[in-house]
Design a binder for these strands. Sequence first.
RNA 1: CGGGGAGUGGCGCAGUCUGGUAGCGCACCCGGCUGGGGGCCGGGCGGUCGCAGGUUCAAAUCCUGUCUCCCCGACCA
Length: 428
Amino acid sequence: MPRLSQYMLPTEKQAPADAEAISHKLMVRAGLIRQMGAGMWTWLPAGWRVHQNVVQIVREEMDAIGGQEMLMPVLQPAEPWRKTGRIEIDELFKLSDRKGSELVLAMTHEEAVTFHAAQTIRSYRDLPQILYHFQVKERDEPRPRAGVLRTREFVMKDSYSFDRDQARMEERYALHVGAYDRMMQRTGLRWYRVEGDVGMMGGLGAHEYMAPCPAGEDEVVLADGYAANVEVATNSPDVEKIGEDYFKDGVRLTLEPAIEIGNIFKLGTRYSVPLGATYLDEQGEERPVWMASYGIGPARIVAAAVEQYADEHGISWPRALAPFQVHLVGLGKPGTPERDAADALYRTLSEGGIDTLYDDRDLGPGEKFAEAELLGCPLRLTVGRRTLESGEIEVQVRRARVQAPGIPLEGEPDGLLRAVDELWRSLL
RNA sequence: CGGGGAGUGGCGCAGUCUGGUAGCGCACCCGGCUGGGGGCCGGGCGGUCGCAGGUUCAAAUCCUGUCUCCCCGACCA
């Protein structure tokens, strides 16, 4: 529960000169992220809290469908990648160690997880399995862009399901669709699940989860009850393109830029066959394991949330992602009665389990308010002379920048905590 | 990979054309004032001008090479 005077939150009044995307500008300005190189970003403490909020939502929903969390390495031997043919991919970082052994930096973990499945899954009794981890992915992108939206290194939750046959793989896939829908819902984002591009490999089906936002790299076509990737819509027999417009059943579809925040693929035996992941069925027949893989990018969810809800004053987090629940602004010089009151409130909130960032710096009110709105925590509490005069803590809801009813300064801590909690629950 | 742009203090920029003691705003440090919307006054710290080589009495500025970053497009398993 940090005090801002001692917290690493390097805010900037001016956005980086070369930034274009809203999320890029605001996340840097708000002190959430800093760049090290092209497509290489550091998450600073407040930014990492947001990232971890997403991670926790994803973890809970994965565990709820029986996912088993684990961790696989990023640095891997090249051999399995040679077997699956993915060694040829340009985006794959390749390197060698001092002995000359060939290594790669994993861009996803199909090879690794299937390698282990091949070692450990022997019988139909060992199936099904859902394994997942949160791990860094490395991709030699031709063009990283827009801050954290497209980077060469990023954390992904990737999960992998292993089944006896296609029908059972479909069951695991359906479980993931449910889990992903719930994750998306919980983040507070606007999102769509669209038919995915099956791509040249696989061909068994895929879905993409898209978050509409101005910096989106893809486009989604929309109508009531219909959402699809533009490329998919273009190839669909029941979608008609007339000039720049798309029509479905005579209804004009709207186009919206969006970013891909998750994707799920039915892999079939694409990886199990080349890597020898097989099991023995009841008849003692050796059969390949049926797989599917499921990815989600917390960083993109964070950036999409910034894009979707920002206003001219800065970020406005959906409450599920906010770095802190409450941004407490203490006005007046340290040592004054109003400051003492703010200190006391800070202790009450912290001890009461409310995530609070306390601006205890010796700065003017304007700067503090402006920075609070830039950082975008859902609730701002202010304690100043006025508070002492009126006996009420001022409460501002960030989203609409409106005053909520004040909370009595004096009284039982429980009442105060209940009031804050109640207000918190009413937010998106 | 094609096209365009940019590297000067922590951030944003001027200076480069026309070579001659490196500047501005913000931030930061010290002192004071102010104290409910990025406030005011005074005094300070901080940069071998991305790097290397060359031309010159003299290079941020001219020449050559090189590295890096950004934007648009292509790509995105």
